[in-house]
Amino acid sequence: MTFALDRFDLDAFIQSTLTEDLGAPLHDGGRDVTSESVIPEDAIFTGVMDARHDCVIAGLPLAEAFFRALDPDVMIEILVEEGASVHAGSDLMRLRGKGRAMLTAERSALNTAQHLTGIATLTRSYVDRIAGTGATLLDTRKTLPGLRSLEKYATRQGGARNHRMGLWDAAMIKDNHVAVAGNVGEAVRRAKAAGVEHIICEVDHIDQIDPAIEAGANHILLDNMPPPVLREAVALIGDRADTEASGGVTLETIRAIAETGVQFISVGRLTQSAPAADIGLDFAAV
């Protein structure tokens, strides 16, 4: 299966992850001393990867890439599409190939699939909670260093939309920028004067909204506002700018936030706090 993401080098990711586990570059002396000691070199294994609880799948093509890196001839059948909801006990992947290679790749493959599936699963629970409100769930930049492309891929599989991918694709003016610039309007004006097209401005108070929009902000981030205040802010903004609620959003509070009429809700927990999914992999010698 072909897997490609913008700004993500799959081969480099596989290489560096296996190198971390093997103690040396993949083709330059890296070793799995346990498998080399215990498993015959010519041993052939079959394997089945399965979900141990209900989850939303993400990362199976990456798991496949780990096995293929160590055994290019391995036979792999992926049984579930990315983004699919599965029940506990569902088979996700079947494998047949060199036993040593399977055992060596197993942890890296599972770690990746478990982490990304965990993110997709948590994301879907938030998406389901705001169904029918018209609000769209956004992720954030609260990602593990080096894994942003993968983690944001996983939130998409869960049904969210990616917010900024980095510091380069939009301006986000926050309290520290405002403090240096002097006020919200001046901070936005500086970004506008620099030629930035997409300007997101965080506001903590209703009275910051008009100065931000008048200066050129086209996206207002309403930070830590309770639903009654959010509703007032959304009405004030109207169609002059996109609206986003953020700050401390949980599964328990997101529905009430969505019902204020806000267009977007950003949730850092999607990537920052998602528990790993319970995915297993059982082998048998042929």
Rank of each mutant, 00 (worst) to 15 (best):
A105S: 09
G146K: 02
E151V: 12
T260G: 07
R52H: 13
L122F: 08
A84P: 00
Q272C: 06
T117Y: 00
T112W: 00
R94F: 05
A215G: 05
L60N: 01
V56K: 13
L144Q: 09
I44Q: 12
L79Q: 09
L60V: 01
G146W: 04
K192I: 13
F66L: 09
T123L: 07
A245R: 01
R94V: 13
D28G: 03
T253A: 04
G89E: 04
F13E: 01
H205V: 11
A235T: 12
E106Y: 08
V74R: 05
E252V: 05
L230V: 10
A233M: 05
V48A: 07
E64Y: 01
F283G: 05
S125N: 11
E232D: 13
D239F: 05
F67N: 01
E82G: 07
V127I: 10
A191G: 04
T19S: 10
D210C: 02
D11C: 11
L116K: 05
I14A: 02
A154R: 12
V86A: 08
V188T: 05
N111K: 00
R255M: 11
F264S: 04
A135I: 13
D50M: 03
P227K: 11
L62I: 15
N162A: 10
E82K: 12
G118R: 14
G158P: 06
V180H: 09
D9Q: 08
M102H: 12
A43G: 09
G132E: 14
L5A: 08
L270C: 05
G146T: 02
A233D: 02
Q15Y: 08
T243P: 00
R52K: 15
S37A: 15
T155F: 10
A179I: 03
Q263R: 14
H198R: 15
L122V: 12
A212R: 03
S85R: 15
A88V: 04
R269G: 10
A84E: 06
R255L: 15
D9E: 12
G23Y: 01
F3L: 10
H219V: 07
A179T: 11
E41W: 03
G268R: 02
H177Y: 08
L110A: 05
T140N: 04
D223V: 09
G158E: 03
A285M: 14
G261D: 10
V249I: 15
D128F: 05
I39A: 06
D278A: 15
D32I: 15
S85W: 03
P275Y: 12
Q263Y: 02
W168V: 08
G159I: 09
T143M: 06
K142G: 12
R190D: 08
G59L: 04
A131Y: 09
L150A: 07
P25T: 15
H219Y: 14
Y153C: 04
F66R: 00
I173M: 02
L230Q: 09
V234A: 08
H205E: 15
Q208D: 13
T253W: 09
Q157D: 01
K192L: 14
R231N: 06
T155H: 10
A212N: 06
G268A: 05
T117W: 00
V196N: 03
